[in-house]
Design a binder for these strands. Structure first.
Lengths: 218, 218
DNA sequence: AATAATTTTTAGATTAGTCTAAAAATTATT
DNA sequence: AATAATTTTTAGACTAATCTAAAAATTATT
């Protein structure tokens, strides 16, 4: 049996380990989970004993295949619930996270497979992140950051890097959603702000925004 | 903050206290929750300190209004989720309970009010039990046990007393569901079994079954 | 009313998860 | 390479919830 707390640690290690193939550090986990390093040490020892992680003192942790499987399943559940909340219960994309954090821990194979079918097997969540299928396979799309585009590129908005409420509300306010088409018109050398055109309307986007918005060149 | 465990105790006290206005005994709670009496004593002390229950040593407990409010809210969530599982995710009525036991603890006002709307404000769950509204009001219907009917009564099936999987599967097998119309034809004095007619088909029902099926005289 | 049976509570221990403060190891800097 | 700074671990304590075993109170039975 995996406890709720263990699940949360496994999820944190998974997310922190996704980029950079190195081991995940104790402090990084502590920061992510808003807890103390000493608590993390205790827990990673336990995860290691239970076979969910590989851990050597002072060397950080990685997930075993068993641990990865659990992590991916939690991610799958989280993202499916987010789709449900937005598509069926009219949540906006900045409201779904904390509820999905709770729902992701519900244990029932049938629940998730039926939910998946009910939602017609979605491949991406409301923030554009891919939903792992029942076997754990994750479809990658070749997205880049808006900040990495070239002048003249025609793009389609496919995801966000940061999904904080403030950022998502900014996008809503400026009528940027997943699927929105935009053209990169100009990059200001001084501050790297970008002028984009959505339909006929021009909009200036700060570098910070452009660094958190994923697009696909179309 | 009410912990998950506290919520489960509050729910148990609520259900045990519903019939019989007396205080709920320590042992009754222990049995219901499959735990030890000593654990119950500790917890009811805590619930009492927190203002959710009234408790005097050796005298059992009752819920305060604050406790009752929490209990009713859990019941509301449990039953709404049951409707969701059956109506939207194609669960059968004997499969919903354990999943709903988990879902009932999810904390989000918006989630429940939106779910309620999505389900079009159902008044009863898949077992015929009433769903409290957002203010906690519970609509009672004048149901009686099938065992209490008179010969010749025309009834409509409106609920079950026991919702164990075995019982619900028995009903499925015999094509008895909520809304099924039936006529009471004969009562056997020896074992109190009852002959009922559904449409044109006669069926003999044991006293034990009749004691667990609620009907409304139509 | 006294004794027996049952129920309930108390006392003390245990487990999961957390914390603080100090010690140990690693990494960075001179 | 030695010292300083940082990171990580250990040791020991705390809380929530549970348990066993024994004591206390209540209820039932003679």
């Amino acid at each position: 049996m995996v406890t709720l707390t263990e699940e949360n640690y496994i999820k944190a290690i998974y997310h922190l380990g996704k980029y950079g193939a190195n081991n995940v550090s104790t402090n990084a986990i502590a920061k992510e989970m808003e807890t103390k390093a000493s608590s993390v040490t205790d827990m990673v020892k336990k995860l290691s004993e239970k076979g969910y992680a590989d851990y050597k003192k002072y060397q950080g942790v990685t997930l075993t295949n068993k641990g990865k499987e659990i992590a991916i399943n939690i991610v799958r559940k989280h993202r499916l619930w987010e789709v449900f909340l937005v598509e069926k219960l009219n949540f906006s994309w900045d409201e779904v996270h904390e509820v999905a954090e709770q729902l992701e821990h519900i244990k029932s194979k049938k629940l998730i497979s039926q939910l998946d079918a009910f939602l017609e097997f979605p491949t991406h969540d409301p923030h554009g992140d891919p939903i792992p299928d029942k076997t754990g396979k994750i479809k990658k799309i070749d997205k880049i950051l808006l900040s990495e585009t070239k002048i003249g590129d025609d793009c389609i908005c496919v995801g966000v890097q940061d999904s904080s409420s403030d950022f998502l509300k900014y996008l809503d306010k400026n009528n940027i959603a997943l699927g929105t088409e935009l053209k990169v018109c100009h990059r200001e050398p001084f501050d790297n702000s970008i002028t984009i055109k959505i339909k006929t309307k021009e909009l200036i986007i700060s570098n910070m925004i452009a660094n958190n918005l994923f697009v696909k060149i179309s």
